[in-house]
């Protein structure tokens, strides 16, 4: 077995190990969806594979393809996910808070509550928050 073949084999096995770790992260998120008590806690579990798992799979693809062009194509995948994942998590968390889909006794501090109380007619759950879309 030549040196090049040995290196290729090691890289392939490294890529496969990264795939297994990414699959473990996904499984952890799925288990978290069942173990955590309320939607806002489940949001915490759900966001683990979104960035780290994707980065692991992207590195695995780069290791197995071993080409600069492929690496260049993979950069926007991670960049787009880095940009959009926090936005969607923020929107979902906001909707969850407004609907009261959480257990207030699990919160150490609820910094949003003071602002909600000071807003005109603002009460949880589903209080008359002034939407930015409203005039």
């Amino acid at each position: 077995m030549s040196d090049a073949e040995t290196v290729a084999g090691i890289l392939d096995i490294a890529a496969a190990v990264l795939l297994v770790v990414a699959a473990l992260l996904t499984l952890a998120a799925a288990i978290g969806l069942w173990r955590f008590p309320d939607p806002l806690s489940r949001l915490h579990a759900a966001t683990k594979p979104q960035i780290l798992g994707l980065i692991l799979v992207v590195v695995a693809i780069a290791l197995s393809a071993r080409s600069a062009t492929v690496l260049l194509l993979l950069v926007p995948v991670v960049a787009l996910q880095l940009l959009t994942a926090p936005i969607s998590a923020h929107m979902v968390g906001r909707a969850g808070y407004r609907n009261g889909d959480f257990d207030p006794s699990t919160l150490e501090v609820d910094e949003l509550a003071a602002d909600v109380d000071s807003a005109p007619g603002g009460e949880l759950p589903g209080g008359a928050w002034e939407d930015e879309a409203a005039p």
Binding site: A15, A16, L19, A22, A23, T26, A29, A30, L33, P39, R42, L43, A46, P49, Q50, G53, L54, V57, V58, A60, I61, S64, A65, S67, V70, L73, V77, Q81, S88, V92, A95, G96, N99, D101
Partner: peptide, 29 residues
């Protein structure tokens, strides 16, 4: 509904990961 929304987000993430894993396993891009 929020639970279902979060779960479908996880499923979409898993789909992206599986598409990537399939590329590694089949050796194409």
């Amino acid at each position: 509904l929020i639970d279902r929304l979060i779960a479908s987000d996880v499923m979409l993430t898993t789909l992206i990961l599986v598409v990537g894993a399939e590329m590694v396993i089949s050796g194409h891009t």
